[in-house]
Nucleic acid binder design. Structure first.
Lengths: 197, 197
DNA sequence: TCGTTTCTCCTAACACAATTAGGAGTCTCG
DNA sequence: CGAGACTCCTAATTGTGTTAGGAGAAACGA
């Protein structure tokens, strides 16, 4: 027998979360207020507390949802087996994922919301996503902590510049292929040097 | 004849600004409250409005000061004339400047304070700093918009990862030389290719 | 020297946001 | 039907930015 009560509760919770995303995307993460959320959902602010323990709990749910989306997104990447091609593919997917929803990017990767720290639970989802990414990269031959750190710096740097300084454009997006070629040449040389010292 | 009134006013303003920096560094940019500032300065919060028109005006003054520090910092870099060496030097200076005071970095380059937008005046100082940097890079042979954009992405990426994921450490700082070698090799090749098409 | 102006700082009060307390209506299930 | 849980409300508290308006001191001109 279905638990109608729990179902409705969940569905209201989801609705609130959806509205929260809408407002956050329109007003910025910091511009999200429970007052606005409540109003758009047809409630008074205190009523939201039946669904979320605090505003931070809302952020946390958004964080968890974003992390889950990140995992799903990754599953869509179809690798070819050629390292350079795959690097370009992965980088482009990552930047696309971030620029498609800058608010989500800010929440997941910049962590710049006033006092917010994700709960252990939500954080675990996020870590899982990054771990999955690490495995994928290891699978195409990018291994070793330094090579990975350099790659993350490069890709997040492109993403960040794109979002901060040319939102909606492609000024840094169009450098992705070039950047991956540069990175690939560098890593190849390093590995060769490592092989025959 | 000295304008003692104006002098005292300026000095109080500077004191308030100093306290604001202290609190911001300790509590985070978003954790800055006028209440705390006033208390540490020995005033009531409304009294601060004799010196700054609003909280944003305080942020703006901090922004302008940070931008000025960025300009001074740059003046200290002594170039050698060798492109790769100078690239490493500049990158290291930049990352040092940012990691030395992450709060300032957040204010100047991340622009993540709730509703804050720098005034045209303060912004001009900031633009001047970046323009100066561009000139310096052009001087050592890094020219062309794409080469510059790629470099800024790389350097800010390193900075960002360092501050976000290993504050106080050197996990990304120690990749700077390697990153600049990678970048230099790439740009050299591009230029050669451009020379003989 | 004495008003006048200006500056500095204060108290009182408002607006807005998150949050808590407590209660009335409503749904679900035994 | 009645008990219990659930949903939503109003009222009130706290913290923060900000405005209004005034008292006292400092500087300045006649």
């Amino acid at each position: 027998m279905r638990d109608r009560k729990a179902e409705r509760h969940q569905s209201t919770k989801a609705e609130i979360l959806g509205v929260a995303w809408e407002i956050a995307r329109a007003e910025g993460l910091a511009g999200l207020t429970l007052r606005d959320v409540a109003h758009r959902v047809g409630m008074r602010p205190p009523s939201l507390y039946s669904y979320f323990a605090s505003k931070d709990a809302v952020y946390d749910a958004m964080f968890a949802q974003g992390s889950r989306e990140f995992l799903e997104w990754q599953a869509k990447v179809e690798l070819t087996g050629d390292t350079l091609t795959d690097l370009k593919l992965i980088a482009r997917y990552f930047v696309d994922f971030c620029t498609e929803n800058p608010t989500r990017y800010q929440l997941l990767f910049q962590r710049t919301v006033p006092g917010f720290e994700p709960s252990a639970e939500s954080f675990a989802v996020s870590v899982e996503g990054l771990e999955e990414l690490r495995r994928t990269l290891a699978g195409i031959g990018i291994t070793g902590p330094e090579a990975l750190d350099l790659l993350t710096a490069l890709v997040t740097g492109l993403t960040d510049q794109q979002i901060s300084n040319d939102p909606g454009g492609d000024r840094w997006i169009r450098l992705i292929d070039q950047a991956m070629e540069m990175y690939f040449a560098h890593v190849s040389k390093r590995m060769k040097a490592g092989d025959e010292p």
